[in-house]
Design a protein around this nucleic acid. Structure first.
Length: 202
DNA sequence: AGCACGATTAACT
DNA sequence: GTTAATCGTGCTC
């Protein structure tokens, strides 16, 4: 059976959390109880004010305040004038760090995902951080949401363990104007495409 | 008050 | 491969 991921899970080094989130299940529960969920297959680490790729680089602001909060909460930000992206806050409270959830393998609620995704729903349901948020209906209301609360409507569960052989690492996406070494650090974690087929649920 | 830009996506050549 | 969409945010004046 699947278990909820606890605050202790997130209160660890961000690179460890990002790696171990691969294969975990992100769940959105609607009023009425219907579930939308998927297995995490891509995630990126953003670590501290010294990381020039991290939103925390310019210090604490209204927008990024959630990253300084307790681990296990959501940091949801708005970008490009139209997209929301979901992070899970990591490490100790007071240290700004988080894991960006970049892609899921849909498990429950595919119809609801397609509905929320609209006309483009048939193309790529949950590949990309903004698509993940659109498919699960995540927006600003979830910024600061405690993902570890028993009453949470958005949370994480154990899913399928991903062996090290099936994990690939690469530089983070979209940091085009970020200086080295930050731009090239291998802080993006992916489940290899060859392993995705074995994760497909019934 | 004004402005340049972004942890992206979809549509197009 | 290129580019428009679209606006909150943080910085400069």
């Amino acid at each position: 059976m699947s278990r909820r991921l606890t605050r202790r899970f997130f209160q660890r080094p961000t690179l460890v959390v990002a790696r171990e989130l691969l294969g975990a299940r992100l769940v959105r529960v609607e009023r009425g109880g219907s579930r939308t969920s998927g297995l995490i297959v891509e995630a990126e680490a953003y670590i501290g004010s010294d990381d020039l790729g991290c939103h925390a680089r310019a210090g604490r602001t209204a927008r990024n305040a959630s990253m300084w909060g307790p681990p296990g909460r959501a940091y949801v930000y708005f970008t490009y004038g139209m997209h929301w992206c979901l992070n899970v806050v990591t490490e100790e409270e007071g240290f700004p760090a988080a894991v960006l959830l970049r892609a899921l393998l849909p498990v429950e609620g595919r119809a609801a995902m397609r509905r929320r995704r609209g006309p483009a729903g048939n193309r790529d349901l949950t590949g990309g951080p903004a698509r993940v948020c659109q498919a699960l209906g995540i927006d600003r209301r979830f910024d600061g949401h405690d993902l570890c609360s028993t009453e949470a409507h958005l949370f994480l569960e154990t899913g399928v363990p991903i062996p090290e052989l099936d994990v690939s690492k690469s530089p983070r996406v979209g940091l085009n104007r970020v200086p080295e070494p930050w731009r090239s650090l291998p802080w993006r974690f992916l489940v290899r495409p060859s392993a995705l087929a074995t994760l497909v649920p019934a």
